[in-house]
Simulated assay, not measured.
Amino acid sequence: MSDKAGSRATMRGWAIRAYGEEMVLMNELPIPTPGPHDILMQMRSAEVGDWDELVRAGEWDMERPFPLVLGLAGAGRIAAVGAAVTDFSENQEVYAYSYPLHDNGAWAEFMLVPQSHVAPIPASLTPVEAGGVPIVGLTAHETLIDVLRVTRGEVVLINAAAGGVGHIAVQIASGLGAHVVAAASRRNHDFVAGLGAAAVIDYDATGDVAKAIRAQYPGGVDKALNCVSGKAANDYVAALADGGKMVDLPGAVSVQRAGVQIISDYVVRGNGARLAELTRRFDSGALRLVVHEIFRFDEAPRALDLVLARHVRGKVVIRTT
């Protein structure tokens, strides 16, 4: 282990002592020790998403002891590698999504992850910006390419299109040659159009969003990526064409409709190879990340509150160092 980590026994991190409790900044959390196939990251930044509230509230059980460090992804410098790690070395700048997790999360000075979850950060992003990529990037890439299998010429609906997953998904889907229909608030129409959306639906002003989509696409949309929770998720099911397919990320769809497929049990997992592909796309100019705001480490609760208010364009990131 490097002197930076090895000379210290403890670290700071935002943690909870039980599910449902408020997060607390703890100053004497143990720094994890890498196993043979692990990488210890000294964190530079961490991703913030509504999934962090699911963990805090106990709706997503991490199956780890308390105190439980929050945060699931981020970027940092490699502080130490396990004895069997051959593809990475100390001081490399990398990023990772750590679920299924090791001993601690990303909202800390150090995070332990399996080497299979890690990839070098894009050269086109700063280490702080890169911390906003892993979960949204992996989610958009896997759902569109492997689950929905989007192909050229298909009509693909993406709602919450200006958000974290949404703004990456619009770019990937349009890059695949799909005709992207983006649902976003009026203030974000030019933004998502600039990302590659061929049509934009104003979900705030439209009384019946499915009817508005059908007015432009009478046959319905071929594929859909639902990023919204609550009853609003059901409105988009009616926009699917017969034989259409939707990935429902929050698992919010509660209606049934014959002839369409709704996938509500998707869970993204750490994948270093897929992150490396995202790195290539960022560095080729095929993808860009929009960062809404960067918060100081001691402002982590404020960062999560902003995300939960659901008016974020792109990503919110916590700067760790």
Results as ranks from 00 to 15, higher is better:
A178H: 02
V200F: 09
A182C: 04
D202F: 00
G207R: 13
N188K: 14
L195M: 07
D190T: 14
A193F: 01
V180N: 07
N188A: 12
A212C: 09
A193I: 03
G207P: 13
L176R: 10
H189W: 10
I201Q: 08
D202I: 00
S185N: 08
A178L: 02
V209N: 07
A182Q: 05
L195D: 04
H189M: 11
R187F: 04
A183H: 03
L195R: 03
V200H: 07
A184T: 11
R186E: 08
V192E: 01
A193W: 02
G177D: 03
V200R: 09
I201S: 07
G177I: 03
G196P: 11
L195P: 03
R186F: 01
D190I: 14
H189R: 13
V180W: 04
Y203K: 06
A178N: 02
V192Y: 01
D190V: 13
V181A: 08
A198H: 14
F191S: 09
F191N: 03
H189V: 07
D202A: 01
V181Q: 10
V192A: 00
L195E: 03
D202E: 00
L195W: 06
V181L: 05
G175Y: 04
A182L: 03
A184F: 02
G177C: 01
V209W: 12
D204H: 12
D208P: 03
F191T: 08
R187E: 12
A212I: 07
A197H: 02
A198G: 15
L176T: 06
A182Y: 06
A210N: 12
V209S: 13
D190F: 12
R186A: 13
G196S: 11
A212W: 05
A199T: 15
G177M: 00
D204G: 10
G207D: 15
D202P: 00
N188Y: 03
A198T: 13
A210R: 10
L176W: 04
A212P: 11
D190S: 15
A184M: 08
A199L: 14
G194M: 10
A199V: 15
A182H: 03
N188I: 11
G196Q: 12
I201R: 05
D202L: 02
A199D: 15
S185W: 02
V180E: 08
A178G: 03
H189G: 09
K211S: 15
H179F: 13
D208I: 06
Y203V: 04
G194K: 12
V192F: 00
D202C: 00
L176K: 05
A212K: 10
V200L: 07
R186C: 00
I201F: 04
I201A: 08
A205G: 13
G196W: 10
A178Q: 01
A184R: 09
V200E: 05
T206Q: 14
A197E: 06
A178K: 02
V192N: 02
N188W: 05
Y203N: 06
D202R: 00
V180F: 09
K211H: 15
V200P: 10
A183D: 09
V209M: 11
G207I: 05
L176F: 10
T206A: 15
L195T: 06
A184P: 08
A212H: 10
H179A: 13
A199Y: 14
T206G: 09
H189E: 13
A198M: 11
